[in-house]
Design a protein around this nucleic acid. Structure first.
Lengths: 132, 132
DNA sequence: TTGCAGATGTTATGTTATTACATCAATTGC
DNA sequence: GCAATTGATGTAATAACATAACATCTGCAA
């Protein structure tokens, strides 16, 4: 899937996420966009919905936050399952893909006749700098 | 770690989760326990906090819900990372452990010098019955 | 130029989780 | 016995996250 031209609100939200050092909550994004005319959470959530669909933004379920995909110019749907390591101290996020992990998980669900739609892998802990 | 004797509130919350067919939100648990004197969310959240610590309950991050561990009489901390398959139609949850997945994920984070604390793997989709 | 689809704006509300503070019960050390 | 401590509990208020419902606008195609 190729990413369509973003609308005004989608671009604003995406730019905020790209410039951010780490993941942001929807309400943090809202606050950053008040000067650009954003007034309500729905403006953010609607933009995020599309950006997630296009694969240019990820949602981090365990911290209710959103982050720009780490693979610029390349949508993430082609990478299989995405795993994240999230530093609980500094908020930094590392993104990673492992086909063997995908294979094991998908093999298991197939055995259960379970039909997977969306998979979340999130590892919370401390990054090298913060663990020191 | 062995599970200590549960307190009154912890037992009430755990019993509700054990008898449930699938995962429950904290507020659903609260409603089910109003007859037993529960009045406020904190009574539920505090009990859940301990039950999670003891490993007899899991939190499903992607659906903000809680489920009793599928391994009765046996705390889950000994199983390594737990993965869940969650049916988005009927709510049924399957729990599973795979050492190869653990190994791959932990190998990667070690390479990044990341110190993992808590890992979430959740696969949302449709179970066999619901996919038919 | 009308009708439609998609994007946007706005208000209100629903859902999930925590802070702050008071009280109670069991245990320990004196 | 009786303070002192610790962990559990009760309660009110509030913070944080997310969606419903409805109105409006804009570009485009029939």
């Amino acid at each position: 899937m190729t990413t369509p031209q973003l609308t005004k609100n989608q671009s604003l939200v995406f730019d905020v996420l790209e410039k951010a050092e780490g993941p942001l909550s929807a309400y943090t994004i809202l606050d950053k966009l008040r000067d650009h005319g954003f007034r309500a959470p729905l403006q953010v959530y609607r933009a995020l919905e599309k950006l997630l669909e296009y694969g240019v933004v990820h949602r981090l379920e365990s911290i209710n936050s959103f982050v720009a995909c780490a693979h610029p110019g390349d949508d993430c749907h082609s990478h299989g399952i995405v795993a994240f390591a999230i530093c609980e101290s500094c908020g930094q996020v590392m993104e990673f893909h492992d086909h063997e992990v995908d294979h094991r998980l998908m093999g298991w669900v197939r055995g259960q006749k379970f039909k997977p739609e969306k998979t979340t892998i999130e590892i919370r802990g401390l990054c090298e700098a913060c663990a020191a």
